[in-house]
Design a protein around this nucleic acid. Structure first.
Length: 259
DNA sequence: TAGTCTGTTAGACA
DNA sequence: CTGTCTAACAGACT
């Protein structure tokens, strides 16, 4: 489960597992996971009480009395609750109650940062566009400008939290071609698109909430209609799903349903 | 076995 | 300005 929805599910898990408590032990398996701040500072912050767990777009952070600890999962990161502190791909583990919270990341693209200031002064979050839930169709149209729609939606300054899977699925559901441009949409299309993004993320959170995020691969169940289904029949008209590349990212689509 | 693909982001470049 | 590609990294798959 992807992107904004996946991070929101993780946030909700961390609220249950961590909020209101501090870690009693911290183990750093990969010092390079921390890309801002010092490791001993991280250990001291994590052992203080976690006041809240927040999300903006794909950024997740825990708030403490005098600092924030930011997590970004990138492609393969996740935080799980484990009986032991060093499962496969563990990069950092901290003990809360009788279990370990573990930041796992097989590709090591994700990272953790300590932000000593208010999060509104942390540039990566400060420059994010609005959350899909706070965005009208009219605002979305204005923010996209004259670009390829997919390219603009992947730009986190346009709208926060949208990724390749959401775009692929929402374009299919709304009949939008993968390489559609802003000028291909009319006024009501923008409202429908803004609504479609919100609905997609709401569905992900409602249907896929679980203690561990499952990334889609060929051995796991693929819950999506067209994403990574090249050659399979379109769920609406049975035309084989095609794959193309737009904005250097794979797009899966039905050439009959999307134009 | 070797080559190809991948959920993100930042930055280089045309 | 827009759009495309790559690096960062490493595992899974063909």
């Amino acid at each position: 489960m992807p992107e904004l929805g996946e991070v929101e599910i993780s946030r909700q898990n961390l609220v249950r597992w961590w909020q209101g408590k501090g870690a009693t032990e911290v183990l750093t398996h990969d010092p390079e996971v921390l890309t801002r701040g010092e490791l001993n500072r991280l250990e001291s912050v994590l052992t203080s009480r976690c006041e809240a767990v927040c999300r903006r777009g794909k950024y997740l952070w825990a708030e403490f009395a005098d600092a924030n600890v930011v997590f970004h999962y990138r492609m393969t990161g996740k935080i799980t609750r484990e009986p032991e502190p060093e499962p496969r791909f563990a990069r950092l583990a901290w003990r809360v109650d009788d279990a370990w919270l573990v930041f796992k990341d097989s590709r090591r693209l994700g990272h953790i940062e300590i932000v000593e200031s208010d999060m509104s002064e942390y540039p990566p979050v400060a420059k994010l566009g609005p959350e899909p839930h706070d965005l009208t169709g009219e605002q979305l149209r204005d923010r996209v400008g004259a670009r390829t729609l997919k390219h603009a939606l992947l730009d986190q300054r346009v709208v926060a939290g949208v990724g390749n899977i959401a775009i692929t699925e929402v374009f299919f559901e709304l009949g939008i071609a993968p390489d559609a441009h802003a000028q291909d949409l009319d006024g009501s299309d923008w409202e429908i698109l803004a609504r479609g993004l919100v609905d997609f993320f709401d569905r992900v959170v409602a249907e896929h909430a679980a203690d561990e995020i499952e990334y889609v691969n060929t051995t796991s169940h693929n819950p999506f209609k067209v994403y990574r289904r090249e050659g399979e029949p379109c769920p609406v008209c049975e035309t084989p799903i095609r794959r193309t590349r737009v904005a250097s990212r794979s797009s899966y689509f039905c050439e009959k349903c999307q134009r």
